[in-house]
Design a protein around this nucleic acid. Structure first.
Lengths: 184, 184
DNA sequence: CTTGTCATGTAAGAGGTTACATGATTCG
DNA sequence: CGAATCATGTAACCTCTTACATGACAAG
């Protein structure tokens, strides 16, 4: 998967500048990239070279010119084709699980402490997720169905943290019961 | 997070060669890297330079020499210190959700088709996960608690796919009911 | 008076992937 | 007879990240 298709979709919803895209991607969980300039500005250049987007430059006084990109018909057909390609599975990278894999050398309270810290971390992320879900998102809402799909996508993202939180809490509980939170 | 700590933990359980590590990492979901030579052999060199592992070379007839790495006391204390560092949150990268975010331009049956393909994909991954859970894993099992922790880690990994599958199935069901699987 | 926003762009480097190279042995 | 396993290592490359550079204006 390529950030290009994320950008193409965002431009299909409405024309935007590189700076607009950067902000959206940096704040989004769905568009999981960091939102750094390098990637976005270069992607826009190569999308332009491929004829998938067009640019319009607006001169501004005392500010650098604002370059607003729009999707072209070629870009739209490229996007549509991509929508029909084989879905990729999600990538899961949870370094904490590796930490836990070697954590048996910690004693009970140390182990519970890092589990607690993990739970706090996840709780914060979940809260941030839910906050984003409240305020008007970048969701296009071009049709009731699109609005519905975006709602479900956001629920999916929240669900990931929800499940993780339940998992870690159950684990803490069971460790407490089975090992009374101390090794020998 | 660094692959170095994954390697350090694996070597703490028992001495292994680069080739051993490569196989473990390539097949593992927990150790989420591809298991390519470059990364592993270079990591071993730098771990060795840092004095965190030691090497013993075993000459073999008609095969290249086997270099078996062991963790050093310095390596063990480095590992233990890392275990106490702040847990990192999981990284979720689900390109399919981006595909779905722009998928409103598909009509009902096209949309259901890609959702179905995603469900198949996830089902396969879940089955593979469960298969791995059956056969004797690389789980160290140095104590009952370690065995327990590894079981929970594996359940976590399976749970991710499980939840995703439930989510996509519920979505398909609701689309069928609400939109009768066709747009105008 | 510093921090944040607007707005573009570049540079350097970490991290990660695929593929290549070698070469004997075993399995189907 | 071709493919897989054992076992090391290198090369080329892509992706992505942090940080830098410029410069005006507004807000606290």
């Amino acid at each position: 998967m390529d950030i290009q298709f994320a950008i193409l979709g965002l431009l299909d919803a409405q024309p935007r500048s590189g700076y607009d895209l950067k902000k959206i991607i940096a704040e989004s969980d769905l568009f999981y990239w960091s939102g750094n300039n390098n990637q976005i500005y270069n992607s826009l250049v190569s999308l332009h070279n491929a004829g998938l987007v067009s640019v319009e430059t607006f001169q501004q006084e005392s500010l650098p010119p604002r370059k607003v990109y729009s999707i072209t018909p070629a870009g739209q057909s490229e996007l549509r084709q991509w929508l029909l390609t084989d879905p990729e599975p999600p990538e899961i990278r949870d370094p904490f699980l590796i930490q836990l894999a070697w954590a048996d050398q910690l004693h009970g309270d140390e182990l519970d402490a890092i589990l607690a810290r993990y739970a706090v971390e996840i709780t914060i992320l979940l809260k941030m997720r839910q906050a984003k879900q409240q305020r008007p998102a970048i969701s296009p809402q071009r049709s009731p169905r699109e609005k519905f799909l975006w709602k479900r996508i956001e629920e999916n993202l929240a669900g990931i943290y929800q499940r993780e939180l339940e998992w870690v809490n159950a684990l803490r509980q069971d460790l407490r019961e089975q090992y009374h939170n101390r090794t020998e």
